[in-house]
Every structure is written in C-alpha cells, then in structure tokens.
Computed example of a mutant assay.
Amino acid sequence: MNDATVVRAVDARKSYDGTVALDGVSLDVHEGEVFGLIGPNGAGKTTLVRALTGTADAEGTLELFGDAAGDSDRSRIGLLPQEFGPPERLTARELVAYYGGLYDESLPVDDVLADVGLADDADTWYENLSGGQKRRVCVATALVNDPDVLFLDEPTTGIDPAGRRALWGLLDSLADSGVTVFLTSHSMEEVERLADRVGLLRDGELVAVGTPAELVAEHGGPARFVVAGPDVEAGADPLRDAGFAVEVGTDELVLGDVTPAELGDAVTALADASVGYESLTWTEPTLEDVYLRLTGETFEGTFTPGASAVGAAADGVAGDSDSAPAAEVER
C-alpha cells in the first residue's frame, strides 16, 4: 500500500424522495489498500459504492484515480454489485468470457476461473451451480478485466467457509500487487480479517474510520467474563462484593472489564458462595462489538455479542481462529 489516493469522496450526499442515503460522507482510499465498509441495512453502503463507481449520481466530490467517478477509465474498475443476475443458460466459462469481451484487454478466462475455485465447474450452466458457486462466477466477472480498483458489495454471500477463505487469500494477493479493494460486508470476521482500514456507515453518515485494532480499542468496550447457568443469578451479589461490576441477564451474569489475572478471583467468589454454573467464557472485544455499539443494534436475549458460550453470532458468522481469543471452561 502506498500514499497514492485511488478512491476519494468529499461531502458526498444523496437522497431518495426525501430519505437521506448519504449525509456528507468523506473518505480517501489508497493504492493497494483494502478498505472495509460496514453498517446496517439501509445505512447507505450500496449507494456509496454506486456513487463512487459512477453508476449513480450524488452531490459532492467523488473521484477515482483523480478523475470524476463518472469519467474514470472503466477498464480500470472491477465492480461486483450486491445483486447480480447474469443469463442462467450460459456456462461459467461463457459468462466470464462474455464480460472479458467487453474490454480491449482481459485476463485468460480459465485463469480467472481457477483463481475463484471454479476450474472444475467451468462448463456447468450457471443455473445448475450452487449459490456459492454462482457468487464465485460473479466475482470472476469483476476480476476478468484485471482492474486496478475493485469494488465488492457483499462478495462472499452464500460461499462456504473453505471457498470464503480461498477468496480472502485471492484478495490479499491482489492488494499485495497494488490493487485497491473497496469491500462492503455484514461479516465482521471478514472485514476484520481483510481490511487495512474500516469505515462504519450509519444513517448515511460515516461515524468512524480506522484500522480494526484502532476501532476495537476506541469503541469495542472492555473484555467480558460470562457466567452461564440456570441459577447463576445468586452469584451477582457475591461477585459485586468481590469488586466486580455485574450485569444480570437471562441465565447469565456478565462481568465487565475483567483481566485474565482476575478470572480466578471471580471463580473463587462463586465457589465461596456455593453458586454453580454450566460454563464460563472470557472474551476480548471484536469488530462485531464496535458495530453493535456504534449502530445501537443488539442481540436478543444476551448482553454479550461475540461470546461463543452465550449467544448466536450475527449474520450467520461464527467465531474461529481469526477471532479474538476466548477462554471457555465447562463444568
């Protein structure tokens, strides 16, 4: 990544029939940078992508490579929209070849299909591919012109975990080669894994921008220790007496700002009060916590998004080895 600005927005504004979609958005994205844009449905993410690629009008300054977005060289841009429905009675190879034919120069079709993991399914009709395979074909159509900037709106929707990780590796390689990637996603795991910087859009406003680590440090909140079980409420007062801040949830106690060194003290306080539990979970904050705090969204039935023992993950995304460390003890 270098300091050359590839994508630029200054005071971008857009409304639809009186509804504000973009409200003064300003940002710069540099050559070779992966920029992740997150936010709730309706926050304006897709509108911003369309404005930056010149496929929708907006007020303000919107530039690619120093030119007005609508006047930029289209051959240098790869775009994967959130919704994309190509002809279904074409094979994967035919579809990618068709989109490659729209440019004066393009990459070898078979190479692009191999890059997205479809070498063995290149001659399968689009309509007979799985949902994840269809999405990979769509990614291939955005790559076939060998773009210098790549806009991906929810690129891994429907792709299985192995395919998703393979695509992440491909995007890493593209960024390392100098391609700028502008990514929108509801997968906080994906954004935290890929993005050099992240912007959070809420109600058309860019409310936070920074590296994932910076956003987690500033907005993620403290580490949490969760005591789960049907009768754990009895442990609230003993834990408070031991100096812990405790919130009582449904069959759980949530202790905020607990360091690993303090875990033993909490367990001892429970044992001294003869309070049983089914599980103990300690988690550090993640980008998911940042998202929930800044958007005001919550999970039903839990104080502790991101804690594997007490709640389901948002948007079908489960934690794994790339997530923040979690310590869990079962009794």
Rank of each mutant, 00 (worst) to 15 (best):
R13H: 15
D265K: 08
A175D: 02
P212Y: 00
G243R: 06
Y16Q: 03
D322C: 04
G306L: 07
E105C: 10
A51M: 12
P222Y: 09
D57K: 08
A140M: 01
G301H: 09
G301C: 11
V258E: 00
R13P: 09
G296C: 12
E59F: 13
G60H: 13
A228V: 06
L150I: 07
V116S: 10
L200V: 08
A266K: 04
V149K: 07
V246R: 10
V25Y: 12
R240A: 13
D121K: 13
V258W: 00
V207I: 15
G18Q: 06
V267Y: 08
E83R: 14
T19Q: 13
D241F: 00
D315R: 09
P81G: 02
I38F: 05
A166S: 15
S187D: 03
A58K: 06
L263I: 14
F84V: 11
V25M: 07
D153G: 04
S308E: 08
G204N: 10
S173G: 13
E192T: 06
D110E: 08
D203M: 08
G101N: 04
G319Y: 15
G243M: 09
T156C: 03
G178Q: 02
P285V: 11
A114I: 00
D11I: 02
S15Q: 13
F225S: 05
E252R: 14
D231Y: 11
A43H: 04
D148G: 10
T250A: 14
Y103P: 15
D251N: 11
L79E: 00
P238I: 08
E33P: 01
A208I: 05
R224Y: 06
P108E: 07
A68F: 02
S173D: 15
A166M: 10
Q82F: 00
A242W: 02
S274D: 15
T124S: 11
V246G: 04
D176K: 06
P81V: 04
T157R: 00
L22M: 04
G54C: 12
E154L: 02
Y16D: 09
S72Q: 15
A271L: 12
V109T: 07
V275Q: 14
T124I: 09
N41M: 04
E63Y: 05
D115T: 01
G178L: 05
D115I: 01
P155K: 00
D111T: 05
G306A: 10
I159H: 01
L255C: 01
G319I: 13
L150Q: 14
L52Q: 05
A324G: 09
E190D: 13
D17R: 14
W125A: 08
A228W: 08
E218H: 06
V6I: 15
T53R: 07
A217D: 15
A122F: 08
G235F: 08
G158V: 03
R197H: 06
H186T: 09
A58L: 07
L183D: 01
G220N: 06
E190R: 10
T156S: 07
I159S: 01
E63T: 09
T298W: 14
T184Q: 13
S72F: 05
G70M: 03
L171V: 01
T157K: 00
